[in-house]
Amino acid sequence: MFDHCTDPGTLDGLSWLYCYLTTGKHQSMYWAIGTVLLLLVITAPAALIFGFGGATAARSRFAPLSWLGRGYIAIVRGVPDIAFFLFFVIALDQAFEYVRHKIKCPDWDQPIRQGNDFVVCAAAKLPLSTSPQWVHETYGFFLAVLTFAIVFGAFAANVLYGAMQAVPKAQIETAEAYGMSHRQSFWRILVPQMWVYALPGLSNLWMVLIKATPLLFLLGVEDIVYWARELGGSKTRQFTDFPHGDWRMWYFAALLVFYLMFTRVSEIILGRIMLRLTKGQATTAGEAQRKAAV
């Protein structure tokens, strides 16, 4: 990458390390940090939408919908999340291909499940076998995001459901006394007020989400765990200009530090947001702030 790095054999000490850490493969690893951040940025709002849907469904007065919402929350919480990750990645892929198969190849007469194979017509394959590499990678990432959103949506639904219950009943009763319909009181009274009750749970969820991002590796995305294993393994002079022993331990130590800093920074920022939101609220924390200010 840099001129003085062209002959690593002559380097030593810090300049060797500097050149080593800026090789092309290492830059792919730094880009993988971007993948993790991208996942977080897309998944957090998506999970919130799923969660909102789940919580609203669980509160529904239409019994089957309510069972559906409650079932969604209960099942995802009763079963290890990794099982869901492994399950949804295949299941979603097959579901998409199945639907496309039904639409694109209506005159296909063979069964889709043939023994241990899942066979759809070539036009229904996702992504198409002719598409370039980046489409395959994007599709894999998209499946991962959807899986994360479904699983974390259930956790968010649990938090939001609790927050909706925590809004004082008198508020809703007052809204009804003013003649608001069920829908109006939900959107105008309940939803704006529930966030302060939901925030502690949601910030906990954010931390959990950060700590779940290495699981991307299990979903077949080339994330930082993949690169740490790849780059850390011992390299001989034959394959690289920078031979070294088994350094995977150090790579994972670096990842450990990365995640520790990430969670710490989030903790501080979320603490500030909480402080702002509780200001003037009729809760214990708000009361404590008021007393401290006097």
Binding site: I210, T213, P214, F217, V225, F252, L256, Y259, T263
Partner: peptide
């Protein structure tokens, strides 16, 4: 830190 990374 993630348990997954701790295992690794």
């Amino acid at each position: 830190s993630p348990l997954f990374i701790q295992f690794f």
